[in-house]
């Protein structure tokens, strides 16, 4: 037990922060433009959408499940939002209600996945894989065969890039989500319950935690956050697309894993996953500035992911260890 606590301490985010700092130093040498204020603001801008998603994804991964529905939910919510916000196609303006409806779509899709997972006992992998397609389908059907919907409201289209106190608005939004996520994880019954479920579901159940409700709630929250990310990404792009979330899943899950959030559940946290996002975004940004062909980006991500998980797992090898 003491050993367990110690190993948990030693695997704190210090190493990750050092890795991020080291990367920044190396990239600044390779291209002085990397350390410019404009580029750092750009890094914050690029990390906003994956940061929002990773908070929800971490809640789900911490309880040992997985949420693959991210890209589908983003497509559905982003498309729902832009069609009822001043745009070039529909001319509808629901104001605040557009946000409520779009976020509601995400929460509903999360609830859908959660109910299938918890009530029908379908593994979360399959339930959220199906929800991915369902969300994508809703996005495609909303888009239909009509014109490309683009934002007509200039103020809204510029909001994500505009600076407040030197930091882009989209990052303020993402930062707020991360802070709320941290509070939920560390200071609420719900957050601790999720960790307990990830550590040992049978014991969590026996200790009176309503496992079913927690699981469904975690997936609903993840759905809502994916929807928020979908709206933000749509705003950044300025027009609607059902593929707005494309490749996000394959940034967010490696980010969480590199950050030290274990896919088996019960270990890690929102802060570490967020640092994982920063690591990947800085890596991507720095490689582009260093003149590396974008073709190599996925490969570098893959290599870093493999190195990170192997380094963490190496000391824990054991003849009887089961790693799924």
């Amino acid at each position: 037990m003491v050993n367990h606590l110690l190993s948990r301490e030693s695997k704190g985010p210090t190493g990750l922060i050092l890795a991020v700092v080291a990367l920044m130093v190396v990239f600044s040498f390779l291209n002085p433009r990397f350390a410019s204020v404009e580029n750092l603001q750009n890094v914050l801008f690029q990390s906003s959408v994956p940061l929002i998603i990773v908070v929800g994804a971490t809640l789900v991964i911490l309880m040992g499940s997985i949420d693959l529905s991210v890209q589908g939910v983003m497509g559905a919510a982003g498309m729902a939002w832009i069609l009822i916000t001043p745009n070039t196609r529909t001319g509808l303006d629901y104001g605040v209600w557009a946000w409520v409806i779009a976020l509601g779509t995400g929460v509903a899709l999360g609830l859908f996945a959660g109910l299938i997972y918890e009530r029908l006992k379908v593994p979360s992998f399959v339930a959220t894989l199906g929800t991915w397609y369902v969300g994508l389908g809703i996005g495609i059907m909303l888009y239909g065969n009509g014109l490309l919907p683009s934002l007509t409201n200039e103020a809204l289209a510029r909001w994500p890039t505009r600076l407040t106190l030197g930091i882009p608005n989209s990052f303020w939004l993402a930062g707020a989500v991360v802070v709320v996520g941290l509070v939920i994880m560390n200071y609420t019954r719900f957050g601790r319950g999720l960790l307990a479920i990830g550590n040992n579901e049978a014991i969590a159940r026996s200790s009176g935690i309503s496992v079913s409700r927690y699981k469904i709630m975690a997936l609903a929250i993840a759905g809502g956050l994916s929807a928020l990310a979908g709206i933000l990404a749509t705003m950044q792009l300025g027009s609607g697309s059902s593929d707005i979330g494309s490749t996000q899943l394959f940034t967010v899950i490696p980010a969480a894993v590199i950050g030290g959030t274990a896919l088996s559940g019960g270990e890690g946290g929102v802060l570490r996953s967020s640092l994982g996002v920063f690591l990947l975004v800085i890596l991507n940004n720095g490689l582009v500035l260093a003149g590396v062909d974008p073709d190599y980006q996925q490969g570098v991500f893959g290599l870093i992911l493999i190195l990170a998980i192997v380094t963490v797992a190496w000391p824990h090898r054991n003849r009887l260890k089961v790693a799924k």
Partner: peptide, 27 residues
């Protein structure tokens, strides 16, 4: 070999090789 010898979760490991292979295909 990577999955069995290093005993890491196959989901994360093969996600990594997926990235490497995508780059290999492009290159």
């Amino acid at each position: 070999l990577l999955v069995a010898v290093t005993q890491v979760p196959s989901f994360a490991l093969t996600l990594g090789t997926l990235g490497l292979l995508q780059t290999a295909a492009l290159v």
